[in-house]
Amino acid sequence: MLKFTEEHEWLKIEGDVATVGITRHAADQLGDLVFVELPEEGASFEKGASAATVESVKAASDVYCPLDGEIVGINPAIVEDPALVNSDPEGDGWFFKLKLADPSAANALLDEAAYKELIA
């Protein structure tokens, strides 16, 4: 199941674990990323809390936790090479895996059509 937030994150949900990243639209708007800071595995976040930081040449931006949950995996490749987020934001440029406290809460997020409408 693929879901989106109004803060331009995407979630690919398999069982009770969501792989989270930022959308192509967000990556394009941010421009060339030069720094990514990821949360630590095992950390828990509430929906809307800042879970990661990205920096372009010009500015720093927060990546918010899209739902309540615990970090069960991170993508060190984007820390090593932040440009990966620009080149493949919805694939190899993923940020973290989140074990959802309440998987049913994902139903309230945007589906792909609703997200496309948001950024249109």
Partner: peptide
Amino acid sequence: PVQYPAGVLKEH
């Protein structure tokens, strides 16, 4: 103009 399609890194 803050940037063109090339982007800040390439422009720099």
